[in-house]
Design a protein around this nucleic acid. Structure first.
Lengths: 229, 229
DNA sequence: TGTTTAAGTGTATTTTGTACACTAATTCAT
DNA sequence: ATGAATTAGTGTACAAAATACACTTAAACA
């Protein structure tokens, strides 16, 4: 038992883990094994330990529940509504994470009875806690961020085609982009290196593969360059 | 005394309160009356109560320490380094607040032995806790936000001149802008209503006063308009 | 070999960004 | 009353970027 002079909220982290799969933006949810909200879908997350930073807690929980390490992860927002957890006052630092499903395989962990990818537009109407609201903030952040930060490359395979990249922007922004103008704009920045390889496609002309040149991006950024789509 | 099965960090809020005064970006700091860091300058802030949201806590603390209400306030980042408070594990949700000093008068409150405005570039080298780091994140957010959100109007008087507005952008972005191009761009948006009045100036030609048309901004924003400087 | 599929390419027009220097309205000192 | 000092206010030419738009190319497969 731990005693304090004043009452304290419990502190947790939650993670909105996005992936791009088959032209769909997806989110990983976990079926709750315990009360409250048993059987409901929820974001991966858990309690912050006393000897770890918040970032560490988020990474640890993500690893425990999915096996994933080394993902792109940043703070989203801290949710502190008084009754967001029916048992107790719980404040949660929500996070925003990105992976590509081709490089990372999910292993269902011990805490979770089940982990499953949902297409963003097919997420169950009711989620545990205020997780629906957290998802809303996450997608807003995503839409805002995508325009001026090169986060798409976290979600795509290392080697990708311009069509895949365009499709990512179209999916997240939820509108169509002109193919020629998109290519002109993205290639003009000089951040994509064409590879020797071409895609082995099921049908149609094989596409040129590119990779994102992060070194060059970091360098340009130091010189005041602003990525923008 | 309050007992919990697992240990919990204490939860606080801190507020970076910005103002624009005499062409200078300023921040309000409070001289600490109690340990730890007695006598050091610190951000206003304090503990989150069990029956209030985080936003409420930030507003309450700001009011207690400065008398200010109805300020522009939003979450900045949650700081959770393990040893950021030497006494105990304390996690702090930092906030970002904007006022204009002409409309709001500071009253030094009970918690604080002293509250003082500092020019942003003349802040003491050492502040209490990790508040220097919080300020660094705050100014970065400010520089990022200013470009695509009309936050300058929170810091300027309700009636302002285009020179004042330009000066604000120049101060925060720390570079000079072309007067004619700046005016063209900002007026083209149609968000500034010219007033009948002119400024009574100490010297030089009196300037046209404008006010920000928030109603129109909200309306345009719903139609997908993006403010950008 | 021709049908299907997706990749890849250029140009003209409009819009926006940028660089740049003088005139206008007021105060203040003499 | 006059001119010196101070700040506000204005337009245009050129460059760069955004936008709209349709056909050709390379492969797979029947």
């Amino acid at each position: 038992m731990y005693q304090y002079e004043y009452p304290r909220p419990a502190l947790t982290v939650d993670i909105v883990l996005f992936a791009m799969y088959q032209q769909q933006l997806q989110v990983l949810l976990i079926k709750r094994a315990d009360a409250p909200f048993v059987g409901k879908w929820a974001l991966p997350g858990g309690f912050v330990d006393m000897d770890e930073t918040i970032d560490k807690a988020a990474r640890r929980e993500l690893e425990e529940e999915t096996g994933l390490t080394k993902v792109f992860l940043e703070q989203l927002y801290t949710f502190g509504a008084v009754n967001r957890d029916p048992r107790d006052r719980v404040v949660s630092v929500a996070h925003f994470a990105l992976i590509n499903r081709d490089n990372h395989q999910i292993k269902s962990g011990s805490d979770a009875s089940d982990a499953k990818w949902f297409d963003f537009d097919k997420i169950p109407k009711k989620l545990a806690f205020d997780h629906k609201q957290i998802l809303k903030v996450a997608i807003e952040r995503m839409r805002g961020k995508i325009r001026y930060q090169p986060i798409g490359f976290e979600l795509l395979p290392k080697k990708f085609t311009l069509s895949q990249l365009q499709s990512f922007y179209e999916t997240v922004l939820d509108r169509e982009l002109d193919k020629r103008n998109f290519r002109k704009k993205i290639l003009r920045m000089g951040l994509l290196d064409p590879l020797e390889e071409r895609e082995k496609s099921a049908s149609g002309r094989p596409a040129q593969l590119y990779k994102f040149n992060r070194k060059k991006y970091n360098q340009l950024q130091r010189q005041g360059f602003h990525f923008e789509i």
